[in-house]
Structure formats: structure tokens, C-alpha cells
């Protein structure tokens, strides 16, 4: 059996399980979500989202008509959802107020990051929403095996996996009683991921290391880089790349001295719409890498092995799969095959 036929088998297996699960949801539906027990008497008629990833998952499930308000945007909505999104009110670019969410009388609030609705939630706590009979669903990618009380962006106890993204899709599909659609989406994401992984495996990589540079508070200062448990770490793990960073934090601050001495084979830099820091601009990141007297000496810079990746793909979102594809393609383009 060849590698690609194995992948095909895996994909068809995923598809089969998807079809098997595609039956109507039985209400009342009870499920555990990030430490809270949720019960639904029926599929929610409307939902407000806090977090772009949550919004985009719902759009992917074809639930655009159920979304009555969105908030916490990092960048432009994916082009395929632009039309749907134009019909939906944007409550806030950033954090919405509790009242603006409640005013929409949603039957569900779908949340990307726990810190918006956790015990110190800046929008409100989950209890506050539950007190007014609005259930909250937090995407499992931000709470499964993750301690959000440690580190600035939380700390994972286990390596992130796209299975938590799949879980979120399946559970939302279950809540909204569209399990067939959910299974289909999971299967297609799994198939894309497997294909990208197989392409990388075919390169027979050896000793490839990388660092993911998100941004820096100041151009020359120690940068925020991907830790060894988040979505970027998962991408590297799947594609057979060694992450030079050894911190469990989601986005630890690591000195350029450490990075340069580890001398990674490739550098992935985040491209984002945010412009809080000069280094948010990927062009400025490139400029730094080429001009800094030390960073410019790294193999990855000298050989121009720099990957520009959508920053939202580096968070645990459905875009993570696109990130895996980009990285896998770059490995081939850079001629890192043995």
C-alpha cells in the first residue's frame, strides 16, 4: 500500500464515519463545553459571535442566516463568506459590550476565546449570560487541554490538534441539528490536512527546523514566537519540522540571541491587518530579518527561506488547515527534499 492510498483510505474512513453520524439531533441535547454543562431544548434560532473564528465556523456550516451579530475581528472575513457577512450586523470590531450582545436576544453566544467570557471575561462571565438564559458555547480549541490562567495567551498542557477544531464543528452541527453538514465539513478539512501532510512526507525531510514569528512590541525587541503546544507547533509536528522554541506558552517572548543561535532552517512570519506594533507589518518583519546584523546571518534568511502566513491560521481556527497547506508547499518550493 502506498502512502497516498493510505491517505485515501483515511479520508474515506473519515467520510464514512461522517455519514454514519449524520442523523437528526435528539433534544433535549446535553453536552459538556469547557467546564460547563449546556442543555438545549431545540436548535437555537439565532446566535451572536464573539471571535472571528467562531463566526467563520458558523459560516462554513452554512449557518450565516442564524448569525445576528458578530464581534472581535482580526482581519477581513474569508472571501467566500463576504456576501453572507455583509448581511450580518457587526456589533464591534473589538470586544462587544455585554449589553450589545444581550440586546440581540440571541439563543446562543458562540465564542472563540475563553478570555472573553471566562472567570475574568472582559465581555461578561459565562454565568452572567447563563443568568439571562443565554447559553454560551466556547470553541474547544481554546480550552481542551489548555490552562488559560497561565501565561499571557494561556498555556496548553498537550499539543494542540485539529481534532479540537473538528470537535467544535461537530458540536455546533449537533446543537443546530445539521450533523450531516458538520460531518461533511470535518471530512473535507481532514482530507485537505492529510493531503498536505502526505506531500510533506514525500519530501523525506531531515533536520528541518523552524520558528514562527508572530510580532514584536518594538521592532528590535524580543519577538513573540510560537510555543511548542499551539497550532503552529501542531503544523510543524505534522509536517516533520522541529520547532526551535521550547516553551509551553502559546506565544512566548524569546530573544533573538536564542533564535539566531538555534539557527532554524526556515522562518514563518505572520501577516495580519493589525497595526498595533510596527512589527505587525510582515514587510517590516522581512526588513528586520534582512537588515539586523545577527538575524541576517541565519541560514533561513541567507537562503531566503521565509514563509509569509496568515496570522489567523496560526491561531487555533479552521484557517489552521490552510496554514498547514502553505507550510507544506513552502517545504517543497524551498527544495528541502532530501
Amino acid at each position: 500500500m502506498t502512502v497516498s492510498s493510505l491517505a485515501l483510505a483515511a479520508a474515506s474512513f473519515a467520510f464514512l464515519t461522517a455519514v454514519a453520524a449524520a442523523e437528526p439531533t435528539k433534544y433535549p441535547l446535553t453536552l459538556e463545553n469547557c467546564g460547563e454543562t449546556l442543555t438545549f431544548q431545540k436548535a437555537p434560532a439565532s446566535t451572536v459571535t464573539v471571535g472571528q473564528a467562531a463566526t467563520e465556523v458558523l459560516y462554513s456550516l452554512g449557518l450565516g442566516d442564524k448569525v445576528t451579530g458578530t464581534s472581535v475581528w482580526f482581519k477581513e472575513v474569508l472571501p467566500e463568506f463576504r456576501e453572507v457577512n455583509d448581511q450580518v450586523e457587526r456589533l464591534a470590531d473589538n470586544d462587544p459590550s455585554f449589553e450589545s450582545v444581550v440586546a440581540k436576544r440571541p439563543e446562543l453566544v458562540t465564542v472563540q476565546f475563553i478570555w472573553h467570557v471566562g472567570p475574568d471575561g472582559i465581555v461578561a462571565t459565562r454565568t452572567q449570560f447563563h443568568d439571562v438564559d443565554i447559553p454560551t458555547y466556547v470553541l474547544p480549541a481554546d480550552c481542551v487541554a489548555k490552562d488559560n490562567t497561565v501565561g499571557v495567551d494561556g498555556t496548553r498542557s498537550e499539543l494542540f490538534s485539529t481534532t479540537t477544531i473538528h470537535q467544535g464543528i461537530r458540536e455546533l452541527a449537533q446543537i443546530f441539528d445539521i450533523q450531516g453538514k458538520g460531518a461533511e465539513l470535518v471530512a473535507s478539512l481532514a482530507e485537505r490536512e492529510n493531503a498536505a501532510v502526505e506531500r510533506a512526507k514525500a519530501l523525506d525531510l531531515k533536520g528541518v527546523s523552524a520558528v514562527f514569528w508572530f510580532s514584536s512590541a518594538e521592532m528590535d525587541i524580543d519577538p513573540y514566537v510560537a510555543g511548542r503546544k499551539g497550532a503552529p507547533a501542531y503544523m510543524m509536528d505534522k509536517l516533520g519540522i522541529k520547532n526551535i522554541i521550547e516553551s509551553d506558552e502559546e506565544w512566548p517572548v524569546v530573544g533573538w540571541e536564542t533564535i539566531a543561535k538555534a539557527n532554524p532552517k526556515l522562518i514563518v512570519i505572520a501577516k495580519m491587518d493589525r497595526r498595533r506594533f510596527p512589527a505587525d507589518d510582515y514587510e517590516r518583519k522581512l526588513e528586520f530579518l534582512k537588515s539586523d546584523p545577527v538575524a541576517s546571518q541565519m541560514d533561513a534568511v541567507k537562503n531566503d527561506r521565509i514563509v509569509v502566513m496568515d496570522a489567523h491560521a496560526m491561531d487555533a481556527t479552521i484557517r489552521t488547515i490552510a496554514g498547514i497547506e502553505v507550510l507544506s508547499k513552502s517545504l517543497k518550493d524551498f527544495g528541502l527534499a532530501q
Binding site: W73, F74, A217
Partner: peptide, 13 residues
Amino acid sequence: KSANAEQARGIMF
């Protein structure tokens, strides 16, 4: 005020 939705990275600097 001037930041997009993103966590408080870097304020501490």
C-alpha cells in the same frame, strides 16, 4: 483604543 482585537501582548513593555 488604537488596537484591533488582540490580546494584551506588549503593553507590559
